[in-house]
Nucleic acid binder design. Sequence first.
DNA 1: CATGAATGAGAGTTCATTCAT
DNA 2: AATGAATGAACTCTCATTCAT
Lengths: 205, 205, 205, 205
Amino acid sequence: MITDKKEHIMNAAIELFAEKGFEGSSIRDLASRADVNVAMVNYYFGSKDKLFEAIVEYKASFMRGKMDEIEANKTLTEIEKIDLIIENYVAKILSNPSFHRILYQELLMGEREAMHENIVKVFVRNITTLRNIIEQGVKKKVFKKVDPELTMATLIGTINQVMLSKAMCNMLMDRDGSFDPYTDLVFRQRLIKHLKQIIHSYLLN
Amino acid sequence: MITDKKEHIMNAAIELFAEKGFEGSSIRDLASRADVNVAMVNYYFGSKDKLFEAIVEYKASFMRGKMDEIEANKTLTEIEKIDLIIENYVAKILSNPSFHRILYQELLMGEREAMHENIVKVFVRNITTLRNIIEQGVKKKVFKKVDPELTMATLIGTINQVMLSKAMCNMLMDRDGSFDPYTDLVFRQRLIKHLKQIIHSYLLN
Amino acid sequence: MITDKKEHIMNAAIELFAEKGFEGSSIRDLASRADVNVAMVNYYFGSKDKLFEAIVEYKASFMRGKMDEIEANKTLTEIEKIDLIIENYVAKILSNPSFHRILYQELLMGEREAMHENIVKVFVRNITTLRNIIEQGVKKKVFKKVDPELTMATLIGTINQVMLSKAMCNMLMDRDGSFDPYTDLVFRQRLIKHLKQIIHSYLLN
Amino acid sequence: MITDKKEHIMNAAIELFAEKGFEGSSIRDLASRADVNVAMVNYYFGSKDKLFEAIVEYKASFMRGKMDEIEANKTLTEIEKIDLIIENYVAKILSNPSFHRILYQELLMGEREAMHENIVKVFVRNITTLRNIIEQGVKKKVFKKVDPELTMATLIGTINQVMLSKAMCNMLMDRDGSFDPYTDLVFRQRLIKHLKQIIHSYLLN
DNA sequence: CATGAATGAGAGTTCATTCAT
DNA sequence: AATGAATGAACTCTCATTCAT
């Protein structure tokens, strides 16, 4: 059971780690931002490292559920499933930019093997679902014979690219720094539309 | 003129930062890895931060030149240009995985504004070239009317996704951990082929 | 409220700074002398600079109070006031030779403007009191028309000269190095007597 | 023989040490201020400490000569001798404020015993001359029976007090920070006049 | 259960000095 | 004779963590 206080600390930590990175954030920073005692982190989580793990565990399942449900749904065609996954995935990531950022920071660094593997597993599970759908589409001949792994890399990579840096995103979109693409609904639709189009034109016969 | 020793330190730093991140790497780590005195970093670069800037400046131009050349080449069609850019970009990034990783680490964290902006500028310049080509293709009606910014995000994002984590990359490819996708020529061709296919099917009328 | 430990550190610091100067004293020296952890100084005071400021604030008022009281006392003549101030000033400074030394070290160096100004203000306040008394005596014609500012310089400067260096003081007094003039009551009386005589012969009509 | 370069470095060092103190000045600061190589100081003087000693040796005799000459002059009365010494001493010190400051910084710190003793000796020699004159005056009954040592402390201490801090000096004199009392001839005469008056009124029968 | 006080380890940086040239 | 390059030692300060209460 996650207490309110633990959750509160984790949420503050997500914001902080996203801004300054894990190593760049000090427990004192976190304590003062979350308005708790410096000893609380070690008290609740044991260590700074374990706090990180707790965060991943707490939030990492943030895509599962919907994915399984979509995959299992027998009334949907493969392309409909993919469209749904795109919509859900974009929505989920855009609503959790900080957590998403943390995950990718961790992925970018080989360090902390156990953690790294953990995160990779989460991703791989999501990816496997997608691959299954694509392979099924290929078997049914509604999809071209594509490279399923790299197709997923394209799908996820496009979203990641946009999530990388608000500043870069805005420069690309010719927006000034005050614009927040991650909460803008028009931008979200634009991203979803692009992904669907490019995936459709690539996959569909 | 960059002396051998400076270059040596920078290369060691690129490896180290790629593994542990900038904040996670200590000057003492770096010194012992590069087998130089701890004071050398400050002696040569002034500070750890400035070492980072020096690295970016030293390596960041790693794509320019070729890009300009390709854009300016009048004997090439737009799609040929894009194919060439894909080939070059993949080659460059796959041969500098550590530096690439560092750049993206920095992008992922808003901190260190000046540095961030610097890197963003480098990217934006490359991206602008690509956008120009796409827009010209659209004007000539050889390309469909696409979203040029997000098309670039797809192109670059796909590569990034693959570069994110060797471990994840290998899991996707069903390879074990000893395989290094970044130096494998077969993998490189596979990536290039995928990118060309997906971009062609999306762009071409 | 100043805790015992803070006070303990400050007292150790006063001794150390007096011996080696502020720049010449390291936090490690101080920590081992005060028998506390090296991190304690930063923990309690924030930084070495702020420790210095804390010391000045803690001790700087060491003459006020008595000075105000003497100045305000209406039953005393001007020369009686000056005699009292001499007695008190000598007593105070001789009982805090280390702190006095620190203050003068800081005054001797222009650096650290804020600190410098702070100390100057403390001195100027004391000096102003004395000037007021002298000027009143001049107005009442019990004092000659003297240079009040330089008269104060003489008074304070004489004491400072004696405080400058125990070694020099002893050489002047034909004493060996083991003699501590600052705690010797005979020496104190001799100093007070000299000051009163020279000031009297200069001021009084 | 002191070469031009050695002298140049010493003069730059005097300025620097006066501003930032001996410990507060780095050889690199000094080298760049004197516009010489960092290795020059050690090359010429052996070490930073020895540079300090060289400075004292080079400049410390700055009062001798005149003092001996005055003491030996048989055509002068004792009070005339003292007046001359006051004039010369004030002139010398006011023209070498930086060096004077350095000497007193060193005196204020017990550290560096050898150096300390050296400086004390220089002072004591000057002081002894003055004491001889006073004692002769006392013997001749032209002077009162005074405390000769503390009389010297008064004389020198008054000057030192004024030299302590330009800022404090200006505050006392109601001048703003741009005024330089040490080069102002009016101020110099005022100081000489005050010293003569106070010493006369104290010494003379 | 929660915390303020305390700490050892290690961070980045600066230092006076040395040495090959 | 003079110097740029290089270095080991020491600096101040911050860190994650512990512990008595």
